[in-house]
């Protein structure tokens, strides 16, 4: 019964995922039909150098070099943030935690901007410079939040700590923007997140991180489940709680940092998605992790699509869309908790 339900939702989400890819590649200033989209994608994946009949090189370029990589990147970022959200919520036993609310995203963005402005370490680290600086920022933010929060990790205390850290790193970011006028545009997009001018290169940075993050997090799904019982119960069951928690916090911060370094701070995906999936298929992390990744990808693809088409030809930062969806959702959960 429960397995059947899980199977239904997995299948449904996967179909929805495929449909979302084709639909969001189709939409845009130039309308390209769904059939043609898939023809172009398949021809690049399995075909040779020649284009299929009836497709001109301009259309091919729009699909393969502009929209498809962007849609895939959105999906990968969405999946990554959703997994980070699942881990944070599980570890902190707090359904209001997510990388954005905790200030981890802001920390990562600050690290990323710092590395862009100063250029430190870029010779040594190459294309990984920005992600690694972002990871440093994310860890610092998380460390500070966990220092401020009370010992019991109560929801309200955690949120307030996150707000403070977010305000602090936000101020650093705004400061950086103010003193460097020529970089303003580039930095500004970190504040609300965007997929403008992102291409395959960024996909190849984040995709391996997502795969590793997904596999490792799934490998720890049993630990995440047991931790729900509480720290003492987990240690009575033979888990090294401190070590597991530290490792998973670092993992979640790392995947968040890499996601932020390619797309900026996009809020609430990691909050909304695990909630919805938990309501649909239960709290077991073995299904929660992969299904959240899938749903996060879908939500982000559509958010980015909306960001592109609503005021076409102008674009909105995608973080605006996710905040419009996420903030009321956040308020709703908070209200529901108070009723209990």
């Amino acid at each position: 019964m429960k397995e059947l339900r899980l199977l239904w939702w997995s299948g449904g989400l996967f179909l929805c995922f495929l449909f979302s890819i084709s639909a969001t590649v189709t939409w845009g200033s130039a309308h390209i039909e769904m059939g043609m989209v898939w023809k172009i994608i398949f021809s690049h994946l399995w075909g040779g150098t020649t284009l299929p009949a009836g497709i001109d090189s301009a259309t091919d370029a729009i699909v393969w070099q502009l929209r498809f990589p962007r849609v895939i990147l959105a999906a990968v970022v969405g999946a990554t943030l959703a997994i980070a959200g699942v881990i944070f919520q599980g570890l902190l036993k707090n359904s209001l935690a997510d990388p954005y609310v905790l200030g981890v995203s802001s920390g990562a963005a600050t690290g990323a901007v710092l590395s862009m402005l100063t250029g430190w370490g870029s010779i040594l680290l190459g294309k990984w410079t920005v992600p690694i600086f972002a990871f440093g920022g994310a860890c610092l933010a998380l460390f500070l939040v966990l220092r401020i929060v009370d010992r019991h990790l109560r929801a309200e205390s955690l949120i307030l700590s996150g707000v403070v850290i977010q305000a602090f790193f936000g101020a650093i970011l705004t400061f950086a923007i103010s003193i460097s006028e020529q970089e303003m545009q580039r930095i500004q997009f970190w504040l609300m997140g965007s997929f403008v001018l992102r291409d395959w290169e960024h996909v190849w940075i984040l995709l391996p991180i997502l795969v590793i993050g997904l596999v490792v997090a799934w490998g720890f799904s049993r630990e995440l489940n047991v931790l729900v019982l509480g720290d003492r119960s987990a240690s009575h069951l033979g888990m090294n709680v401190a070590r597991v928690r530290l490792f998973l916090l670092l993992l979640a911060s790392f995947v968040t940092a890499v996601a932020v370094s390619v797309s900026g701070t996009i809020g609430f995906v990691g909050l909304v998605i695990p909630h919805i999936i938990r309501m649909l298929t239960g709290a077991d992390h073995r299904s929660l992790i992969p299904l959240s990744a899938l749903a996060g990808a879908i939500l982000m693809m559509w958010s980015d699509c909306l960001a592109r088409v609503i005021f076409d030809p102008r674009e909105l930062p995608v973080g605006v869309i996710t905040a419009f969806i996420g903030a009321p959702f956040f308020a709703m959960i908070l209200k529901k908790r108070q009723k209990r």
Binding site: K2, N225, V228, L229, G230, L237, G238, G282, A283
Partner: peptide
Amino acid sequence: TMEEIDFTVGQVVEMGRYP
């Protein structure tokens, strides 16, 4: 335990096999 646990009874008992 006073904590809010979103698991079914079967899932909780299953966790006893963790070690």
